[in-house]
Deep mutational scan, measured.
Amino acid sequence: MAAGGDHGSPDSYRSPLASRYASPEMCFVFSDRYKFRTWRQLWLWLAEAEQTLGLPITDEQIQEMKSNLENIDFKMAAEEEKRLRHDVMAHVHTFGHCCPKAAGIIHLGATSCYVGDNTDLIILRNALDLLLPKLARVISRLADFAKERASLPTLGFTHFQPAQLTTVGKRCCLWIQDLCMDLQNLKRVRDDLRFRGVKGTTGTQASFLQLFEGDDHKVEQLDKMVTEKAGFKRAFIITGQTYTRKVDIEVLSVLASLGASVHKICTDIRLLANLKEMEEPFEKQQIGSSAMPYKRNPMRSERCCSLARHLMTLVMDPLQTASVQWFERTLDDSANRRICLAEAFLTADTILNTLQNISEGLVVYPKVIERRIRQELPFMATENIIMAMVKAGGSRQDCHEKIRVLSQQAASVVKQEGGDNDLIERIQVDAYFSPIHSQLDHLLDPSSFTGRASQQVQRFLEEEVYPLLKPYESVMKVKAELCL
Results as ranks from 00 to 15, higher is better:
residue 5 G to W: 11
residue 7 H to W: 10
residue 11 D to H: 15
residue 12 S to L: 10
residue 13 Y to L: 13
residue 16 P to H: 15
residue 16 P to S: 15
residue 18 A to T: 15
residue 23 S to A: 09
residue 30 F to E: 02
residue 39 W to I: 07
residue 46 L to G: 02
residue 47 A to N: 04
residue 52 T to H: 13
residue 52 T to K: 14
residue 52 T to Y: 12
residue 56 P to C: 08
residue 58 T to E: 11
residue 59 D to Y: 10
residue 61 Q to C: 12
residue 64 E to K: 07
residue 74 F to N: 12
residue 85 R to M: 14
residue 93 H to T: 15
residue 98 C to D: 12
residue 101 K to T: 14
residue 106 I to S: 01
residue 106 I to Q: 05
residue 109 G to C: 02
residue 111 T to C: 04
residue 114 Y to N: 03
residue 119 T to H: 03
residue 119 T to Y: 10
residue 124 L to C: 12
residue 132 L to M: 11
residue 134 K to F: 07
residue 140 S to D: 14
residue 143 A to R: 02
residue 154 T to Y: 03
residue 154 T to G: 03
residue 156 G to M: 00
residue 167 T to H: 07
residue 171 R to C: 00
residue 178 D to L: 01
residue 179 L to G: 05
residue 181 M to P: 06
residue 188 R to Y: 00
residue 198 V to H: 03
residue 200 G to A: 12
residue 205 Q to C: 12
residue 207 S to C: 07
residue 213 E to N: 15
residue 215 D to A: 14
residue 221 Q to E: 12
residue 223 D to V: 00
residue 225 M to W: 00
residue 233 K to H: 08
residue 235 A to E: 11
residue 238 I to R: 01
residue 239 T to I: 09
residue 241 Q to M: 01
residue 244 T to P: 14
residue 247 V to M: 10
residue 250 E to S: 14
residue 255 L to N: 08
residue 260 A to D: 02
residue 261 S to E: 05
residue 262 V to D: 05
residue 271 L to K: 01
residue 278 M to R: 02
residue 286 Q to K: 01
residue 286 Q to H: 01
residue 294 Y to M: 02
residue 295 K to A: 00
residue 296 R to C: 08
residue 297 N to F: 00
residue 303 R to C: 03
residue 303 R to N: 01
residue 304 C to S: 10
residue 304 C to R: 02
residue 307 L to K: 08
residue 310 H to N: 08
residue 311 L to H: 01
residue 315 V to Y: 09
residue 317 D to H: 04
residue 327 F to Q: 12
residue 329 R to L: 04
residue 336 N to S: 14
residue 336 N to E: 02
residue 339 I to R: 03
residue 339 I to G: 07
residue 343 E to T: 15
residue 344 A to C: 03
residue 349 D to T: 08
residue 363 V to Q: 03
residue 365 Y to N: 14
residue 365 Y to I: 04
residue 370 E to D: 13
residue 374 R to D: 15
residue 377 L to G: 05
residue 383 E to L: 02
residue 384 N to V: 08
residue 388 A to E: 06
residue 391 K to W: 06
residue 394 G to V: 11
residue 396 R to C: 02
residue 400 H to N: 05
residue 400 H to T: 04
residue 404 R to F: 06
residue 410 A to F: 08
residue 410 A to S: 10
residue 412 S to Q: 14
residue 417 E to P: 04
residue 419 G to L: 10
residue 422 D to V: 00
residue 427 I to C: 06
residue 427 I to S: 04
residue 428 Q to I: 09
residue 428 Q to T: 12
residue 430 D to C: 13
residue 436 I to N: 04
residue 437 H to I: 11
residue 437 H to L: 06
residue 441 D to T: 08
residue 453 A to R: 04
residue 459 R to K: 09
residue 461 L to P: 02
residue 465 V to L: 06
residue 468 L to K: 07
residue 469 L to T: 14
residue 476 M to Q: 15
residue 480 A to D: 13
residue 482 L to E: 08
residue 483 C to S: 15
